[in-house]
Amino acid sequence: MSELIQKLEQQFANLIRTYRKDQIGKGPEKIKVTFTRNWVIAHMSGCLSPVERFISRSEEGRNMIWHARTHMIKELYSELTPIDMENLVGAKFVKLFTDVDLEKDEVVSIFVFERSIDGTKNTFSI
Rank of each mutant, 00 (worst) to 15 (best):
M44G: 04
E106M: 13
T98C: 10
P50G: 09
Y19L: 09
I55G: 05
I73E: 14
V100F: 06
A13G: 15
E52H: 01
S78E: 15
K7C: 02
V94M: 12
N63G: 08
V108M: 13
P28L: 01
K92T: 06
S109A: 15
R53W: 13
K121F: 11
F54A: 12
R69L: 03
T18A: 13
M64A: 14
D118E: 05
L102M: 04
I31D: 05
R69E: 09
Q6A: 13
I73A: 05
G27E: 04
S116W: 05
D105P: 09
K30E: 02
K26W: 03
I16H: 08
K30S: 01
N122K: 09
G119E: 08
M72N: 13
V108K: 03
V108Y: 04
Q11W: 01
H43C: 08
I65F: 06
V100T: 09
I55N: 01
V112T: 08
E60A: 14
R37F: 10
V40H: 09
I41M: 05
Y19F: 15
T34G: 02
I83L: 11
R69T: 01
K74I: 01
A13H: 12
S56H: 01
L102Y: 01
T70N: 08
K21R: 13
S45F: 00
S78W: 10
D118S: 06
R20D: 08
E9H: 13
N122W: 06
V33P: 03
